[in-house]
C-alpha cells in the first residue's frame, strides 16, 4: 500500500503563491541531502505539479471507493 503526502492551500489562494511554493518544494525535494534524510524514514521524494497532484487525488478517491465497495468494508 503506497501512501503519499502533499501540501494544500485554501481555494482562491493567489497563483503566484502556489507557483512560488511549488518551485521551492521542487528544489527542496531535488536536494540529495533531503532525499537521503527522507530515505531514512522510508519516504521517496517525488515532486509533482499542482495539476498532477489534483489528478492523483481525484483518481485515488475513485479507486478507494471501489476498494471499499468490492471488499465489503462497512461505511461508518
Amino acid at each position: 500500500m503506497i501512501s503519499w503526502n502533499g501540501v494544500g492551500v485554501p481555494k482562491d489562494t493567489p497563483k503566484e503563491v502556489i507557483d512560488t511554493m511549488n518551485k521551492a518544494m521542487r528544489e527542496v525535494l531535488a536536494m540529495s541531502e533531503v532525499q537521503e534524510q527522507l530515505g531514512k524514514v522510508g519516504v521517496i521524494a517525488k515532486a509533482s505539479t499542482p495539476e498532477e497532484a489534483l489528478a492523483r487525488l481525484t483518481a485515488d478517491i475513485k479507486k478507494w471507493n471501489d476498494v471499499v465497495d468490492k471488499a465489503g468494508i462497512p461505511r461508518k
Partner: peptide, 29 residues
C-alpha cells in the same frame, strides 16, 4: 493520503476537500 478518508467519510470529506485548491507535491511512503 486522503482518498480512503474520502471514501469512508463521504458526507464530510468532499466538502472539506472542495475547500482546497491544488496540492503542491509530496513524498511517497
Amino acid at each position: 493520503t486522503a482518498p480512503p478518508s474520502a471514501s469512508r467519510r463521504s458526507r464530510v470529506f468532499p466538502s472539506t476537500l472542495s475547500g482546497f485548491c491544488d496540492g503542491f507535491d509530496g513524498g511517497h511512503l
